[in-house]
Write a protein that binds this DNA or RNA. Structure first.
Lengths: 338, 338
DNA sequence: CTGAAAGCGCTAACAC
DNA sequence: GTGTTAGCGCTTTCAG
């Protein structure tokens, strides 16, 4: 399939065939109201007959809008971001927009260059789960200087002048910890995440729930991990402690899953001797060695709401206040905390 | 952030500042060889000073190439397709291309409209894991009529005139079944996938391996499923059989994981009484109740190779023969077949 | 090596 | 209702 056997049909071709102006055809295509019924009918027929497809590149250049919005995520393999992407697409497609998705590989530099490219492609707006260092402002300033609306998701950057949509991390931390307490745990350890807002929020919620129950735990009960392998290692260290924790709250499901693996490997029973909680409700949680109790973040909902706000900002004439939306989490109790 | 405080810099602005023609600046930007060293230096300096960013929409319209390739997958949440996407992006980014990813939701109609949109956006090429019915040709004919190069991945469509890159499904079916046989299974059941080439190929490989070992199994040993829930149901039916299978080969990891859940729930031990195999090596396979033996499909490699072929076709002057590339699978033996 | 001319295919704004 | 006039910002082609 080298060259198009037949070059694509243009507005001009339709117009010539019908002896009308290009503008008239253009208006019909865009469903403008000011076209005669009869003319419209003929044009529509011809369009179908010649199988005309608008050229969006030309349209974008002339209209100075591309109807493309960029979505930047740190890792496409995480189903969390896949779900967000689906929520975004489902919201904007009916409105005539397309998404282009970029993977920053959890790297601020890569992310910056991805964003530059999207900007060069003239996207109408940006949705970013940013991999920038927590107090950075550079990238956001550049986007703002270009005047392109953007919405931050999953990770908060208080210094950025943008709306934010994400899970309520503190609440999730509280819910998870309270749940373990209710189930009888007295020595609750936490495997915290990387130093980004989701990890920090969940840690804060964990501490609040402990304080509210008047529980003290040794510093050694706080570990760190970012995936299943490091969660496994973290749990091994926790298991060596004396007294050993009787509850582990992992900042996400992979970390909690890795922790469970270490616990079971050590011959310790879940949930009898140690109860475990995660966050994220990844779809395989129910299939694990011991089905994992977790908290659903409402990923698709994050995508939908963020997209909605972005489109609102794009469409709005005037500047809007930068809202912060926290999605309400849902606890899902399974075997690991029975 | 409503309007750009300062309108974007254009080639024309740079040219005016320097008293050179727009063409000269354009050539410097595109790294054409025919520009004087001194001129180039000055232009480059000005570009940096004014922070010029090329407008890709205008560039695409004039050059009649967008440097965008479209990737259409049936489900973004599957990490398999996430990995493919990463492989694709990693290959084409350095060459100046961007990917736009679409999710067809396993629906041929949605896929067709996604492809139409991508075509309207003037993508330079398409990568498709197609959700069309197996013997359909309509969509492919339309793409071919437009003269846009495309490569099929994961699912084969013999009637389409396009290169194909995917896992070697028959080989995976043989490998999985042989592995179960080697581990001592004598009554091997198969939970087959939907009637698409991956499922059909694995089923064929399963049958070949059985035949080669002179094994006969009752028809009731063949079940169907597409995910963990249906895999669970399928396994429940298998467990009710007499004689009961002593090995189950699930066409993918979710189906196999669901099957394991049913088996364990019935109080049957894995691997002692029933051994289980999957395909896909999803990253959580190691965390399941019983770590799942599986076969790695080399998803990232599929993405890389498909992208490489596509770029080759785009760049090539003449038509190339439509190659078929099968990625070599790797067996990963874990607890479930010990 | 440099630049002028001529669009790419479409749309905004305003006349008729 | 319809069509005209001007581009959008860049690249192609080809003459200097």
């Amino acid at each position: 399939m080298p060259q198009p056997p037949t070059p694509p049909v243009r507005l001009k071709d339709i117009a010539r065939e019908l002896n009308v102006s290009v503008m008239t055809v253009s208006k019909v295509v865009r469903e403008c109201a000011d076209v005669g019924a009869e003319t419209r009918r003929k044009v529509l027929a011809k369009i179908k007959e010649m199988n005309y497809q608008p050229n969006w590149v030309a349209r974008s250049l002339a209209a100075r809008r591309t109807f493309i919005i960029g979505l930047v995520v740190p890792d496409l393999i995480h189903s969390f971001f896949g779900e967000i992407a689906k929520g975004v697409a489902a919201t904007i497609r009916p409105l005539g927009y397309d998404v282009v998705i970029c993977d920053s590989e959890e790297n601020g530099g890569v992310e910056t260059s991805e964003v530059e490219r999207l900007l060069a492609r003239q996207v109408d707006g940006l949705l970013i789960a940013s991999a920038q260092p927590p107090s950075s402002t550079d990238l956001f300033e550049r986007i703002e200087a270009r005047g392109v609306p953007y919405v931050l998701i999953d990770r908060r950057f208080p210094l950025a002048q943008a709306p934010y949509v994400g899970a309520d991390d503190e609440e999730m931390g509280r819910m998870a910890t309270r749940h373990l307490i209710e189930r009888g745990c007295r020595r609750i350890a936490h495997i915290a995440g990387p130093p980004l807002t989701p990890g920090a929020g969940r840690l804060k919620g964990y501490r609040e729930a402990l304080a509210e129950a008047r529980m003290q735990v040794p510093d050694s009960y706080l570990e760190h991990a970012h995936d299943d392998a490091s969660g496994y290692e973290a749990a091994r260290r926790l298991l060596a402690l004396d007294p050993r924790p009787d509850g582990i709250f992992g900042y996400n499901d992979p970390a909690a899953s890795g922790a469970m693996k270490a616990v079971l490997e050590a011959g310790v029973r879940i949930p009898e001797e140690i109860k475990v909680m995660g966050v994220g409700n990844v779809h395989y949680s129910d299939l694990l060695r011991v089905p994992l109790s977790t908290i659903d973040q409402g990923a698709a909902s994050i995508g939908r709401q963020a997209a909605g706000i972005l489109i609102g900002t794009i469409t709005a004439k005037r500047k809007r206040p930068a809202r912060t939306i926290l999605i309400k989490p849902t606890l899902i109790a399974r075997e690991s905390t029975r």
